[in-house]
């Protein structure tokens, strides 16, 4: 056997030829990244623009850290940022609680109103924001006029918060629903088989397994709230959030601090995405090992 093997000629080495078509994908990918990311690069860059006045201009002069040092120097901007955050946290928490509940119900049970609820969730996402915003505004105005059970919704923080909760719920619900649908129901059977009451089974098995969906839903709701302009602009009364304030200043020129804050928010987003990617990677490689 081995004598035959040594007598045989060595295997032919194959040269991998690259056809020109194999460059299409990398070139296209590079172009797309450039196209999508260039506004972000410009934003980051203009945070360092060494300009004479207090308003952003198109001419870029390199370079200064003064806007980073003075990022807290505009009281109106500070107030708007604070409003944005004090809306985003509670609205994301409330939307996560309610959306998780709806997602569990939709992913789990067959009941008579299920199709309707699914459709409503779909509508809530598909409906144009401009329509939703004006509808919410007229509803708040109506409520304030009719005062059912003495309730009012002052236009400002309260109306912004309620609006943000309402448009975020649907996004949380579909993220959680997807997770619940992928869940093996026999796991809950197994938990009960091992003496867990339904409540304990939910807490020890179901919740940990749908947690990635819940967290993703929360982050989505948080970002949607921070970012929302259209709906907020309808219902905000005299109160500004970060987006509405920036939009207001854009008429007379945006202060460079806006680019600084834009950069900060962008980095926070990148960081979050990075962490969740790393976690997903850890989970996957953990499985493969």
């Amino acid at each position: 056997m081995s004598a035959v093997a040594t007598a045989a000629p060595p295997p032919v080495e194959r040269v991998r030829r690259r056809r020109w078509t194999s460059f299409i994908l990398p070139v296209f990918t590079g172009a797309m990244i450039f196209y999508l990311a260039s506004p972000v690069f410009l934003m980051v860059l203009y945070g360092f623009n060494d300009l004479a006045g207090e308003r952003q201009v198109a001419r870029f002069t390199c370079c200064t850290l003064v806007w980073w040092r003075q990022m807290f120097e505009l009281p109106d901007l500070n107030r708007a940022l604070r409003t944005s955050l004090t809306v985003a946290f509670p609205s994301a928490i409330a939307a996560t609680a309610l959306g998780t509940f709806i997602g569990l119900v939709l992913g789990r049970y067959r009941f008579s109103g299920r199709a309707v609820l699914n459709f409503v969730i779909f509508l809530a996402i598909a409906i144009p924001e401009i329509v939703l915003g004006s509808a919410l505004l007229s509803m708040y105005v109506q409520v304030n006029e009719m005062r059912p059970f003495g309730a009012t919704v002052p236009l400002g923080y309260t109306s912004i918060l309620l609006s943000h909760i309402s448009f975020s719920i649907a996004f949380v619900a579909i993220t959680v629903r997807a997770r619940v649908q992928g869940l093996d129901r026999t796991l809950e059977n197994a938990a009960q088989d091992l003496f867990a009451t339904p409540a304990v089974a939910f807490w020890r098995v179901t919740l940990p397994l749908i947690l990635p969906g819940v967290v993703a839903g929360f982050l989505l709701a948080f970002v949607l709230s921070l970012d929302d302009f259209v709906i907020t602009n309808f219902v905000n009364g005299q109160t500004d959030t970060f987006p509405t304030w920036v939009f207001g200043t854009s008429k007379i020129g945006v202060p460079p601090q806006v680019n600084v804050w834009g950069t900060v928010l962008f980095l926070a987003g990148v960081l979050t995405a990075g962490v969740s990617l790393a976690q997903a990677y850890r989970r996957r490689t953990g499985r493969a090992a």
Binding site: D184, T186, L187, N189, A190, A191, Q192, D193, L194, F195, A196, T197, V205, P208, L209
Partner: peptide
């Protein structure tokens, strides 16, 4: 209910808790 019965089950899909 199952959690009050003195029996245990080996499921066809094993149903091990992945987390």
């Amino acid at each position: 209910p199952p959690y009050r019965r003195d029996v245990n089950t080996v499921f066809q899909s094993y149903a091990l808790f992945p987390h």
